Amino acid sequence: MSLDFAINGKVRDLADLKATLRRLWFELYPRSGKSLVLDTSGFEHVMVGEFKSAGSVNGMHSWLSFYEKEQNGTLNYYGHTCSVHSNTVCAAFEWDGRIKRKASLFLRTSPAYDIAIYSLCFILYPGGMCPIVVDGTAMVIRTYSKDGHIATAFVVE
Rank of each mutant, 00 (worst) to 15 (best):
R98P: 07
M47Q: 06
T88N: 08
C82T: 04
H45A: 01
I99C: 01
H80K: 08
K100Y: 01
R98Q: 10
L105H: 14
V57W: 08
P30L: 02
K69S: 07
S83M: 07
W63Q: 10
K34E: 14
G33Y: 04
A54W: 04
L38M: 14
L36Q: 14
R101H: 11
A103Q: 02
E44L: 14
G73E: 09
E68Q: 14
S83N: 12
V46H: 05
G59F: 11
S41T: 14
S56K: 10
E68D: 13
N72R: 14
L36D: 12
W63R: 07
T40P: 00
T81N: 06
V57M: 14
S41L: 05
L75E: 07
Q71M: 15
S41G: 08
D96W: 05
V84K: 15
F43N: 05
W63S: 04
G97T: 02
A103L: 03
S32E: 14
S41R: 02
S86I: 08
S104Q: 09
D96F: 11
R108W: 13
E27A: 09
L64Y: 08
S35D: 07
G59R: 09
E70N: 12
G55Y: 05
V57N: 05
Y29T: 03
S53P: 07
Y78N: 09
R101Y: 10
Y78T: 00
S86A: 12
A92Y: 03
L105C: 09
F43R: 01
F43E: 02
H85N: 09
E94P: 00
G79F: 06
S56P: 03
A103R: 00
F26L: 15
V57F: 06
S53L: 00
G97E: 05
N72S: 13
W95H: 11
G59T: 03
I99D: 00
L105Y: 13
S104I: 04
L75A: 06
V48I: 15
H61D: 06
G73P: 02
S53A: 07
G42P: 08
L107C: 06
E94T: 07
G97M: 10
M47F: 02
L107E: 11
L36F: 09
L107K: 15
W95A: 10
C90G: 13
R98H: 14
L105D: 00
E27V: 06
V57T: 02
W63L: 04
L64C: 06
F66M: 03
N76L: 12
S53Y: 06
V48R: 10
E44R: 10
C90N: 09
E94F: 01
Y67F: 13
K52L: 15
S35L: 09
E68T: 13
A92K: 14
S65R: 01
L38A: 05
Y67D: 15
W25I: 07
E68L: 15
Y29V: 05
Y29Q: 04
H45C: 00
S35W: 03
T40C: 01
P30M: 02
